[in-house]
Simulated scan of single mutants.
Amino acid sequence: MVKDLLFEQNEPLKIISELGDVDYFPGFFSPPSSQSIFNRLIEDITWHQEPIWMFGKKIMQPRLTALYGDPAIPYSYSGITMETVAWDKLLLDIKDKVEHVCNTEFTHVLLNYYRHGQDSMGWHRDNEKSLGNNPVIASLSFGQERVFQFRKYSDKSEKKSITLGNGSLLLMQGATQKYWEHQVPKRAGIQAGRINLTFRKIFPPK
C-alpha cells in the first residue's frame, strides 16, 4: 500500500540558501517502494512526446511527458499547452505525502520520463505567470539517478550540481525560480530510465 511507502523523515540537505531556497530529501521513499512506483508509472501513465520550438525549428522534446491534476485549469510552458488528465489514486497518494512535508497544496503534477541518458531537459526556470510569485515546486525522482544542475540566471557564474537518487525529493521554493535556472543534462552510457514528478500549484487564468 502506498500509505506505507514513506521513510522516516530525515533532515534535508540544504542545496541553495542564497537568493532562493532548495532542500534535498534523499530516501523520501524506500528503495522497494520507489521501484514499485516506477513500474506502475511506466505502465499506467499515458505518456506523450510533445513538439517544441528551439532556435526557430520545431523538434520533439528529448523525453516523454504527462500532466495530471485539475482538468479545469490548463497549463502552458515553452509554447506548449498540455492536456490535463484527472488524478489517479497512486498520484493522489503520493501528492498527499508530499503536501504534508511541503505544507503546500498542489493542483497538478508534471511528469517527465527520461528513457536513457540521451533524454534531457535544458536550462529553464519554472516561472510561468500561472504559477504565481515564488512558486513551491516539489520534485520526486524514481529509477535511474541523474545529475541535476542549478546556475544563477543573471550571469551564469555560479553552478551547483546534485545527483538525484531513486525515491528522493527536491524542494524548490522562495525566490529560487527568479534567481536560479536548472537543467537535467545528457549523460553518455546511461541506459536505464528515470521518472520525475514535479508537483506545483497552478492558478486559473483571470
Rank of each mutant, 00 (worst) to 15 (best):
P26K: 06
S36T: 12
D44W: 12
F7R: 12
G20D: 02
F28C: 07
E11W: 02
K14F: 14
V22W: 01
Y24G: 01
K14H: 14
D23Q: 09
L13K: 14
I45Q: 05
L41Q: 11
S36W: 14
R40P: 00
L41E: 11
P32N: 15
I15G: 03
D44N: 11
I15N: 08
F7E: 13
N10A: 09
F38V: 10
R40S: 07
L41N: 09
E18V: 00
P31R: 09
E43P: 00
K14S: 15
S30M: 13
L5D: 10
S33F: 07
D23S: 14
R40K: 14
S36H: 13
S33C: 04
I16G: 04
F7M: 11
F38R: 04
Y24V: 02
I37P: 08
F28Y: 08
S36V: 10
E8L: 13
E8I: 13
Y24T: 02
I15V: 01
F29L: 02
L5S: 07
Q35E: 12
L41G: 10
E11C: 04
S34I: 02
S33W: 06
P31W: 11
F29C: 02
E43C: 06
P32C: 12
Q9V: 09
G27I: 07
Q9M: 09
D21A: 06
I16Q: 01
Q9K: 06
I15D: 03
V22S: 05
L5I: 01
S17I: 03
S17D: 00
I16A: 03
L13W: 08
S36Q: 10
E11M: 10
S30P: 06
F29Q: 06
I16K: 01
V22H: 03
S33R: 07
L5K: 14
F7S: 07
I16R: 03
E11H: 13
